Amino acid sequence: MSGTLRNPTIRSGRSFDLGKMNLRQLWVAYLTYPTILLYFALIAVSFAFAGHLFAGWRLTIVTVLAVIMIYPLVWYLLHRYVLHGHLLYKSRFTAALWKRIHFDHHQDPHLLDVLFGGPATTLPTIGAVTIPVGWLIGGPGTAATAFCAGVIITCIYEFFHCIQHLNYKPRARWIQRMKAYHVLHHFHDEDGNFGITSYVVDRALGTYYGEARTRQRSPTVFNLGYTSEQAERYPWVMRLTGHAPKDRPDGARPESGERAPPPQGARHVA
């Protein structure tokens, strides 16, 4: 993939830096990224299975709608209570998992490699959420349909997640708002706005906020509570990282720690 984009300035370490990429470069990176290509292949395979075991249009449509409805809730619960939880980093056996699936993303929000979830964790989760729902609705045919729908939604989530960290101001106002809310999650207070494409569950459960001025800035917005003190007590993530947890993005001035700048194109919160 490194040969698909010629501009070396968009690379940061082992990953493309979304803060330096434009929309065209994102499309190239996204459509050639190995994880996304794997998802596309699984969509094709599960779609073929769903067609071979077709359960009828009514059950198929019900299955797709069920997956669409439960996905935001499942994502919210996982994001809030697992990815932002402290349990995983407190064990040497799960510290690497927590570091990979979310800590690295909050430490460097623009790095593409850690923005995408790893297939080893995302695919079992998608299967565990969607396949039982589909099976209960109509058996193996709708189970395949549910899994297919889950992977498609994941691809959509991942693309919009990239947009939210991209050096790009969307033209559509609804995407601007979506991006602004996610920027607040990463640069102001991580204990809110857990959604990606929808903030309905955040609104229902009281974690939505639309403007920075409505909340104090969180001192743990970049380290998710894995502070230097916690790192001394539970050192496994720090050992894997090779340095103490950061409390501000790379390149931020010390005095700017109270209000780190959001990515270009997402400075104004509607």
Rank of each mutant, 00 (worst) to 15 (best):
M1I: 14
G3A: 11
L5I: 09
L5W: 02
L5Y: 00
L5N: 04
N7H: 10
P8E: 03
R11F: 06
S12F: 15
G13F: 01
S15H: 04
F16M: 08
F16E: 07
G19E: 03
Q25M: 06
L26Y: 02
A29E: 05
Y30M: 00
L31R: 14
Y33D: 12
T35F: 14
I36F: 11
I36C: 10
L38Y: 08
F40S: 12
F40G: 14
A41S: 09
A44I: 11
A48L: 13
A48Y: 14
A50E: 01
W57M: 11
W57Q: 12
W57A: 13
L59E: 08
L59W: 03
T63A: 04
V64Q: 05
L65V: 11
L65Q: 10
A66M: 08
M69T: 10
I70Y: 01
L73H: 07
L73W: 07
V74I: 10
R80H: 08
Y81P: 02
V82S: 08
L83R: 13
H84D: 00
G85A: 03
H86E: 14
H86M: 11
L87F: 11
S91V: 05
F93G: 09
A96M: 03
W98I: 04
H102I: 00
Q107N: 12
H110K: 15
H110C: 15
L115S: 03
L115A: 06
F116L: 09
L123E: 10
P124N: 09
I126G: 01
I126A: 02
G127N: 07
A128G: 08
V129W: 01
T130H: 01
V133E: 04
V133M: 00
V133P: 00
P140D: 04
A144L: 06
A144K: 08
G150T: 01
I153A: 10
T154D: 13
I156V: 14
Y157L: 11
F160K: 10
H161K: 10
H161A: 07
C162R: 02
L166N: 01
Y168M: 05
R173C: 15
R173K: 15
R173L: 11
M178S: 06
M178G: 06
K179R: 15
V183T: 13
H188P: 06
E190G: 08
N193K: 02
F194H: 09
G195A: 03
G195Y: 00
A204P: 06
Y208I: 12
A212T: 05
R213E: 12
T214M: 14
R215I: 12
R215A: 06
Q216M: 15
Q216N: 14
R217G: 06
P219V: 05
P219E: 02
T220V: 09
V221Q: 03
V221G: 02
G225H: 02
T227K: 01
T227I: 01
S228D: 11
Q230W: 11
Q230S: 09
R233D: 12
V237D: 00
M238T: 02
R239L: 01
P245S: 03
D247I: 01
P249G: 15
E258F: 14
R259V: 10
P263R: 12
G265V: 09
G265A: 05
G265H: 08
A266L: 05
R267N: 15
H268N: 14
A270D: 15
